[in-house]
Design a protein around this nucleic acid. Structure first.
Length: 813
DNA sequence: GCGGACTGCTTACCT
DNA sequence: ACAGGTAAGCAGTCCGCG
């Protein structure tokens, strides 16, 4: 069968081209369609020119104003014509910014990533009876509250229930000679030779190309039988291109910005004709002519993916960190960046390992990442190359556009939404923010045994759904809706029409809560299918979690501030009411944040009563989320530690967990975590208290006596979040340290994490440039203190008395 | 001229 | 380029101190 995986405009044939993955031949095929033309909509007919193909009056639904309107559908002879016209004609145009290939996908109803077959020059969707059966079943089970939502459930259900193809793919990595330890090879110049290229495929092929280096002993290569050596770099690169054309999918880690452009530029330098170079360098990505290029660096950098799909298991995006977090293994360690100094065997091993990790990142957990990409491609109606690189607001936007087109609705212009629907009515607590957000309840400090946490499942998506929120329904024009307000804000909500956002996000939410969450845990389902359900569940989670936020982001094309603030306002209303109800029932509320409530030792009876009340009052699933053996709260919000009944420790927000904290303190923190799992009842606290004091004292003394093993253990790790020139207002410590690195000739850029130690005289130094005796021990002791008071307070440990007191005494003895 | 109080900047976290 | 809320540490400024 054929699966559409990519779409683009083909300049040679002057029409749209789909790339289809054939899962029988395991190759890519192309499908050209010259019956579809670029177009946009206009309020007025334009003066006819040779670049306009036709102009035709069409009827559209305008959901923003709730009326039917007539617009001119203007078809052009080339996609670029639309841009040219938009520069001259700046008013009265609609949908002129939507990419041509996206229009094709939406209007021709191309289901990306779904099965098709070619018949008489056309593509026909191939129905899968078993999947259809499951779709039927899920609709019956969910039993949508609105009849008109059934088609949405059907199409979403199909996208998630149809099986995904096996994708043949190869991971690729190159190594380039490097003359300067402090710098990475320059891509623009591409002035140094490529030394090694490796391909590793998921069908078992391993290909290694290596360049013969004049300075290196050739005798040791006899046992490298699978390696093909080249004396000509040009030949090696030509062979590399040949290989790249053989695979339908090429996976890299940072291939967009390094491997592929370097190969392309190097090829040009070596005189390979441009038509033989299968690499297309675009502004924001690097593509392949005959394959789909997935750059995992881009994929793993997508914030929403990082946080929701991978639960922040990795915090910086580089191959070593991501692989260690997800696969449990990292890169091969090298002494420095001097690739040229490695023996052939080491160089090849190193390069192969990178390819191996890159491939494994797409295959682990039964192809989790590859399947995530396919599901997201399906849901977003975007080509794989785009969905795997672009942030989540692009996916949601694309989903919304598709839905507008399917209903013959004109897509409103951002500025029109703002004019018609108005601005925010609430005031944020934080300076510079646009509107008020969630409620955080001040915690009751102390050790609380038997604490249970209840929370609303997908609170914000549920609010979007239940309260029919969207740009078309908030502050609508109908007189009878004006009184339909909720809670504290003046906005009213439409009673006549349903909002697309509410339908789409609401349906996704229902699918997740009532179907995929359950299926992913169902023990009667075979393993592979269960894993697929888990992928579907995670994909929906990622989308739902961001769905509210986009309406408060002014760059989002359906930006609608009243919708965003109405969501949080209703959220505040719901959680506040629930806390009040809990107290009425006689439950002790210890803490709460946004959609969760911590309750101290509730009776099963009262807890169930609260759960039932919340569910029926708000029609949102309110469930028992966690049962803690105990939680340890301080007065600080968003900061706590809890031990679950399973013995697992849950740490939130504490300094000991943050990634910038030096290792010497983190290790202490982890040891204390283990001790805390050994507390089962209040009497245990006493025993563990002494052990914890002992631990901290040890580190305290180690610092006082300057007896650390390794200076690296004292390094803070702080990320540079913007270009160095942008730090105009202040010079933070990590920037100061970074500048010292630059002065020594190192390259430092936004996104890098700086490792620095605090030195005497309120100074800092990069750890690589600092010496042991420069360390400002007082600063570290202060940090040790501040890190541990967060949990010591509730334990009844006093720094002065218990840590310093004993240590000072001992020092006298 | 110095130090404490204060504000604002920056990063990393929580939901 | 999904949002707002919170903690922490530091940089820089203001103000009072005769």
């Amino acid at each position: 069968m054929l699966y559409p995986v990519s779409a683009d405009y083909d300049n040679e044939f002057n029409c749209v081209v789909l790339k289809l993955y054939n899962d029988e031949t395991e190759r890519l095929e192309k499908f050209y369609d010259d019956t579809f033309f670029p177009y946009f909509l206009s309020e007025n007919k334009l003066s006819q020119t040779s670049s306009i193909r036709s102009q035709e009056l069409v009827e559209k639904r305008d959901a923003l104003h709730d009326e039917q309107i007539h617009l001119w559908k203007i078809k052009t002879k080339h996609p670029l014509v639309i841009r040219a016209i938009s520069r001259v004609q700046t008013t009265g145009l609609y949908e002129n910014y939507i990419k041509f290939f996206q229009c094709y996908i939406y209007d021709m109803n191309v289901k990306m990533g779904m099965p098709y077959e070619r018949k008489e020059g056309r593509l026909n969707f191939v129905t899968n009876d078993k999947a259809e059966e499951r779709v039927h079943e899920l609709i019956k089970l969910i039993n949508p509250s609105h009849q008109e939502d059934i088609p949405i459930f059907e199409s979403l259900g199909r996208l998630l229930e149809y099986p995904a193809p096996f994708i043949r793919r190869a991971a690729m990595d190159i190594e380039v000679l490097n003359l300067d330890v402090k710098k990475v090879p320059n891509v623009e110049a591409a002035n140094l030779p490529v030394l090694c290229v490796t391909f590793l495929s998921n069908s078992g092929e391993k290909i290694v190309f290596a360049l013969v280096q004049a300075n290196k002993e050739f005798s040791c290569i006899e046992n490298l039988t699978q390696v093909e050596f080249f004396t000509s770099e040009r030949e090696m690169i030509e062979k590399t291109f040949e290989k790249m054309n053989e695979y339908p999918f090429i996976i890299t880690f940072n291939g967009d910005d390094f491997d592929l452009p370097y190969l392309a530029r190097r090829a040009l330098r070596l005189g390979i004709p441009i038509c033989d170079i299968p690499i297309i360098m675009q502004k924001r990505m690097t593509l392949l002519k005959n394959a789909i290029h997935i750059d995992l660096y881009r994929f793993f950098s997508i914030r929403a993916m990082m946080i929701y799909a991978f639960a922040s298991k990795y915090k910086t995006v580089d191959l070593d960190t991501v692989a260690k977090a997800l696969l449990g293994e990292g890169k091969i360690e090298k002494k420095d960046n001097m690739v040229g100094n490695l023996s052939y065997a080491d160089l090849i091993e190193y390069c192969l390992k990178d390819s191996e990790l890159t491939l494994k990142l797409t295959t682990f957990n039964n192809n989790l990442v590859m399947n995530l990409i396919i599901v997201l491609e399906r849901l977003s109606h975007m080509p794989i190359e785009n969905v795997s690189r672009k942030s989540i607001s692009n996916w949601i936007r694309s989903m919304m556009y598709d839905e507008h087109r399917k209903r013959n609705m004109v897509i409103p212009r951002s500025e029109d939404i703002l004019t018609v629907k108005g601005q925010t009515a609430s005031v944020a607590l934080i300076k510079g923010k646009k509107y008020k957000g969630a409620v955080v309840v001040k915690p009751k400090a102390g050790f609380h045994f038997k604490t249970k946490v209840g929370d609303f499942a997908s609170l914000y998506p549920s609010i979007l759904k239940n309260y029919n929120l969207g740009y078309s329904t908030i502050n609508c024009k109908h007189p009878e809706c004006k009184t339909n307000t909720v809670g504290e804000l003046p906005h009213h909500i439409c009673k006549r029409n349903r909002a697309i956002e509410s339908q789409l996000i609401g349906s996704l939410r229902d699918l997740r809560v009532f179907w995929y969450k359950k299926k992913a845990k169902d023990k009667t389902i075979e393993k592979e299918r269960k894993e697929w359900y888990s992928v579907a569940e995670q994909s929906i989670k990622v989308i739902c979690n961001a769905a509210y936020g986009v309406f408060g982001n002014k760059e989002f094309s359906l930006y609608c501030p009243p919708v965003a603030e109405e969501v949080t306002a209703i959220g505040r209303f719901i959680i506040t009411e629930t806390i009040q109800k809990a107290q009425e029932i006689g439950l002790e509320v210890l803490y709460g944040d946004t959609d969760s409530i911590f309750i101290h030792d509730p009776s099963a009876d009262k807890m169930n009563k609260l759960i039932e009340w919340a569910k029926t009052t708000f029609d949102i699933e309110f469930e028992l989320d966690k049962s803690y053996r105990y939680v340890c709260l301080s007065e600080r919000k968003k900061n706590y530690l809890g031990v679950l009944e399973s013995g697992e420790v849950d740490v939130k927000g504490l300094t000991g967990k943050k990634k910038h904290t030096p290792m010497i303190i983190k290790r202490n923190f982890d040891a204390i975590k283990t001790l805390l799992t050994e507390i089962h009842k209040p009497e245990d606290i006493e025993i563990k208290r002494t052990e914890i004091i002992k631990l901290i004292k040890k580190t305290y003394r180690q610092l006082r006596e300057r007896a650390w093993d390794n200076l690296d253990d004292l390094a803070f790790h702080v990320t540079i979040t913007k270009d160095l020139e942008e730090y105009k207002k202040t010079e933070p410590q990590h920037i100061k340290a970074a500048k010292r690195l630059i002065a020594k000739g190192y390259e430092v850029a936004a996104g890098d994490t700086i490792d620095f130690v605090k030195t005497r005289g309120k100074d800092v130094k990069p750890v690589s440039l600092a010496k042991n005796d420069e360390v400002d021990v007082e600063k570290y002791i202060e940090f040790l203190h501040n890190t541990f008071v967060q949990i010591l307070e509730p334990l009844g440990i006093e720094w002065e008395r218990d840590i310093l007191g004993l240590c000072k005494l001992e020092r006298f003895m």
